[in-house]
Design a protein around this nucleic acid. Structure first.
Lengths: 292, 292
DNA sequence: AATACCCATCAGGAAAGCAGATAGCTCAAT
DNA sequence: ATTGAGCTATCTGCTTTCCTGATGGGTATT
């Protein structure tokens, strides 16, 4: 393989302009350069690319086949060059996104679809985690960007930005004795076991209404146990509406709290790490789609 | 774009072998050549491809992105080289196949599928024609290979090879008075209009059993008119079985001809034109599949 | 026949690429 | 701490490639 990209470019230009001279003018070279380039290419490939009987050379069938191969190669070279330019201007070659597994999926999926379309060559890693794992991954560099539920404390190295609030609801098993009443008082509720999200890493600032509390690091685990009748919990609406549990759960209205406290959704990234254009776009997009 | 394929090859080798020295050994070059090649590539792309702090260089994230782009380009270059080799050895860059539209489709389609898989880069043209058009197209160079029903006369410049025989049947409209009898005599048949294939170009050697004859150049047109009750015809089995007509047609048995004459299927190509490997393969494949 | 345009080839000079040598670095083993 | 193996960057001189501009010969149009 002794030929090079310049020779392919000559071939393409000659095929497109119909003559070596015109190709040379287009390429800003001397005619002799194009002529010898194509002659060498023909020797290297062992093919006659142009029929030179007439006034202007005409592509042979083999030449046409080589032109389409060459065109594809040069297109890919342009692509490499473009990619290099984008990377040089700070665009991320890869990105790791950490999201809390209990976030509503549709806006995340939509965002990722838009991301794939806009930056087809980006290498993405998506980490699903529970609660305090998210800021931890971002902090230690495992992830570049994190989306999580509001945490009581976060490492000081992280920049936080609240992007949405999700309304919550109190759930209990359909089979639970509490489920029989449409409205309950706080004092009634506090007699039963409450399940709250918390993790050994971060603290917990979720509202505690009952002295009898179990802590779990996943809303799904909470919903699962609540469905089994082990207690009640305050969870985001979309968790209560999750198809797998919906039949097994009932929502409670609390007389003192007709609108239970909402939970915030936050975006975090390292203060130190420079944000590339894709990360910035992703933040805006996630923010827009999650807050709708 | 000042970089070249050698530099991309150096990048790939260095990334794969973990050091410039190892890459140089693999490429059969001096270490300094690889070192400068990659240094120039970095300048041209405006990127740092390797982190050189440690004992051996390690790819940066941007470098990894460039490696995957470069790998694709070099793969395509190999492909071009391979294609050139095949073309130089006589493989056809493009092929035009002319087939009679009345041939049974499934074996043709199967052959074309196998062709597409085996020679993905081949440019194919498929011409559907009726009767004498096929040898005409092959003769004048419009097509390279033709598949047709036996013709009485063919240009002497063509090489012919019979590859199959298709059994035929006598058809008549379901509404036709002949359709009421399971078996008819030749003398009865000759009182009705017979439709035969023929074309102004070639003559006609199809069996004429009736003095009242219409000539058409397409079996489909014949089946259509027979279905309308305009007469009877001798056609290949698969035409009689064609879904669009099947309900409208009846088959007749002729007492003197319990097995009506079959019709041959032939392959033609120019004697002069050199047959490439794909054309030869195609002939064998068509022959095998049509004669099954 | 004249003109305009094209191609291949040649010679000389510029540019790029390469091998080999060398100096400085990192890492691991002693 | 020292030594040694292995690595990279850089320099020098040489070779090869590449380019331009000129020239001769071919083809189609006027």
């Amino acid at each position: 393989m002794h030929w090079n990209l310049d020779q392919l470019a000559c071939l393409l230009a000659a095929a497109e302009h119909g003559s070596f001279s015109a190709a040379a003018r287009k390429l800003g070279k001397a005619q002799s350069a194009v002529s010898t380039a194509i002659a060498h290419l023909e020797v290297d490939l062992g093919l006659t690319l142009f029929e030179r009987s007439g006034r202007t050379p005409t592509l042979t069938a083999a030449g046409a086949a080589m032109v389409s191969e060459a065109r594809e190669i040069l297109r890919q070279c342009d692509q490499l060059q473009g990619r290099a330019l984008a990377l040089a201007s700070g665009e991320e070659p890869r990105l790791t996104l950490a999201v809390d597994e209990a976030l509503p999926y549709p806006p995340l999926i939509d965002t990722l679809l838009a991301l794939a379309e806009r930056w087809p060559a980006l290498e993405l890693s998506l980490l699903n985690g529970a609660q305090a794992e998210i800021p931890h991954w971002v902090d230690d560099g495992t992830a570049d960007l994190g989306v999580l539920f509001s945490q009581p404390t976060l490492p000081a190295t992280l920049a936080v930005r609240q992007i949405a609030r999700l309304s919550q609801t109190v759930i209990v098993a359909a089979s639970h004795s509490l489920a029989r009443r449409p409205t309950v008082r706080l004092s009634t509720l506090s007699r039963y076991r409450q399940l709250v999200v918390a993790s050994p890493l971060g603290g917990n600032r979720q509202v505690r209404l009952s002295p009898r509390v179990w802590q779990l690091n996943s809303y799904y685990a909470i919903a699962e146990l609540v469905a089994q009748g082990i207690g009640w919990a305050l969870v985001p609406e979309h968790i209560a509406a999750y198809p797998m549990y919906r039949e097994l759960l009932r929502r409670l209205t609390i007389s003192e709290l007709p609108d239970p406290p909402s939970v915030g959704v936050e975006l975090v990234h390292r203060r130190a790490g420079a944000q590339g254009p894709i990360a910035r776009w992703l933040q805006d997009e996630l923010s827009a789609r999650l807050s709708r």
